[in-house]
Design a protein around this nucleic acid. Structure first.
Lengths: 234, 234
DNA sequence: TAGATTGTTAATCGATTAACAATC
DNA sequence: TAGATTGTTAATCGATTAACAATC
């Protein structure tokens, strides 16, 4: 049984945003390592595989309150359990997906979200052919039924996968139905009341970062310099 | 014609990563504003709509070298042009998509990438029914043809949208074919040579941030506090 | 024991915010 | 002119990295 250091719930609530983004990375990586039979792992090994600084890994691991053992490393299972608890993966949150085209279907077909605490329990679409059918085992409804489904199932999260021009409209309906948070995959900026949380998937931003890293590297190569260090800052 | 300040190519190469991630956000927002007829915009207006700090917006705008006019604001068209140039949206980069399931199809069907400098010019899949067909006007090939297509078209970017278990294998083949950068949508960590750029879409990380923001807000609500400020740190 | 690894404090680095001058 | 907005320097804040002690 891995030991935990004295709890500090404050640190957990005030988690630095960059650290918070790394935790799921560690989680996925550790699960993979575990599947391959790894039971103990060192911070330097994690750092190397994930292109991070070893000290940063240890600092992040300190957030989990799991103690590593000098000379051996960290207990993989203990880290996985703690990360899951911190990220609230054990409390399934109900969510609905609005827009069941290719992207919405991809999300509905991906069973992995359950492992990350998300339960996609209904889809919505305006296409009459889809309404009443199922996508990846999830039933598809007409938008008329949004309010009742959201209320009956205490749905907290709405996922928007409709085309850009309908996104704000869908967003307004989700907010009207009482949703608390929106995961937006539409390439547009949404306007919401102050108490509603919006997380933009912003695929273009990610692409731009990739594109810029590529351009910059090529510039450096051409000017005969070494390729920049490859630490992951995504 | 909007004035540009004296060029500083160095600042552009050493762009802070957080700023780089905000630029495409500005770009998308400004394009939308322009479509609605907005020609001049103030930093405070941008800041308000995007949940950023006005000074930060001005600092970011300074990176574009576009000068604003006191009392009026910035020329929307000039900002759009400069952002497009900085983000290299005008040089179309060829890319291939490996894995033409729901997610791959969603990407291939999305025409918007052209506006962000990305040309998805071929898809690859192992499904014989797909091979030889088209998805969103893009031809689908067997993986055997990866090398020749990549070489003939100087493809620099590979997009991975295959299931987790095949991602590393596909990655190796892309690298072998001479690709320089990988945009990875598979929920797994890829191991690549040092000179290859990997950008993980990491949908679980994004979901975790959303989930944590929601949990934290609800904790604060229950303990009778004000909902935290909603500045966008995504 | 010696040596490898963790864990923590201090130093550095970098980004954000504040303050205020410049400008139209 | 007065006032609103930009632009820049300085201060603050926060995250990363370095240094080194603690531990097995």
């Amino acid at each position: 049984m891995a030991r935990l250091k004295k709890p500090d719930p404050d640190a957990e609530l005030n988690m630095p945003q960059p650290a918070l983004r790394r935790l799921p990375q560690y989680f996925g990586y550790l699960v993979q390592q575990q599947e391959q039979g790894v039971r103990i792992i060192s911070s330097s090994r994690i750092a190397e595989d994930l292109n991070l600084h070893p000290v940063q890994v240890r600092k992040d691991m300190a957030l989990t309150r799991v103690s590593g053992k000098p000379r051996t490393g960290f207990d993989v299972q203990a880290l996985i359990d703690e990360l899951a608890r911190m990220l609230d993966y054990n409390n399934l949150k109900n969510a609905v997906v609005v827009g069941c085209g290719h992207l919405g279907s991809a999300l509905l077909n991906y069973r992995g979200f359950q492992g990350y605490g998300l339960n996609l329990m209904a889809g919505f679409d305006s296409n009459p052919e889809l309404i009443g059918s199922r996508v990846g085992d999830v039933p598809i409804y007409a938008l008329d039924e949004l309010d009742s489904i959201v209320h009956e199932n205490h749905v907290q999260i709405g996922v928007i996968t409709v085309p850009r021009d309908h996104a704000q409209d869908v967003c307004d309906r989700l907010v009207g139905a009482g949703i608390k948070a929106i995961w937006n995959f539409a390439p547009t900026h949404l306007f919401v009341p102050a108490d509603i949380i919006v997380q933009n998937e912003n695929i273009a931003a990610s692409l731009s970062v990739l594109s810029k890293r590529l351009s910059d590297q090529q510039l450096r190569m051409r000017s005969g310099q070494v390729p920049g260090d490859d630490r992951d800052r995504s």
